[in-house]
Amino acid sequence: MRALFALLHRLVAFEWLRLRRGRQLRVAALIAAAVSAATLVALVASPEAQLESTLNDVFFWGMFNVFAYALAFVFHAGIIADEVQARTLAFLVSRPLPRPTLLLSKYVAGSALSWLLLWVALLVVEALLGLRSVTLLRDQGLWVVRAGLALMLLTALYAAVASMWSALLPEAAATMTALHLGIFEFAGSWMPGSFRWISFNYAAQQLADLPPRGLLPELAPLVDPVAAAALLIAATALFLGLAIWTFQTSEYRAST
């Protein structure tokens, strides 16, 4: 077990270095900066009485509907696909590494960077709240942390989805991830009534205690926070398991 953790640590360090040196981190940082800037503008422009609802808007649009998708896309859609296209995967799969550990470490490294950027963005939001109104920071500070935890689970799930498509169809990973997240997650979170269950984004919003939006919000199911968290974790495990199984059994050949 100790050897496995040592190996995992080495692999995560390798992937961390690759992501840091690559364009992924710069792109994700740019998106984080854009979301933070939008938050700044929204909170500064909002009247005092509407600050709470503005904060909900900021989280609904900025965090749940832009940042969570973007992070998965930037860090995980290319988890295998980039290596296949760059033809560098040969160096990794000819090493004496268990393939599940290899994929898992890539997933962990990408998720760690995602969460780091997520919490940096959330800290910026907290700081802006404090600058705008100390009362608001006192009232909403804990809620921001709760929303942050929900976002962590959601980004972990989206990372697993992107990893699965990356392992399954490396030549079309970005397209398939975009279609999957666009149809099931984004569009699903706007569906009326029980159709909304198809979207884990909605479950994460419920976990963050955001009021339902979209089509006929009054008919949208209310999800227990514990059930929402369990659902997100189970789905993450499922998609990650599929990604690992696919990677374990697949051959990869660069198409170029």
Binding site: R18, A86, R87, T88, A90, F91, S94, A254
Partner: peptide, 9 residues
Amino acid sequence: FCPEADALY
């Protein structure tokens, strides 16, 4: 293993 492709990190 030294692959043929001129691909590196």
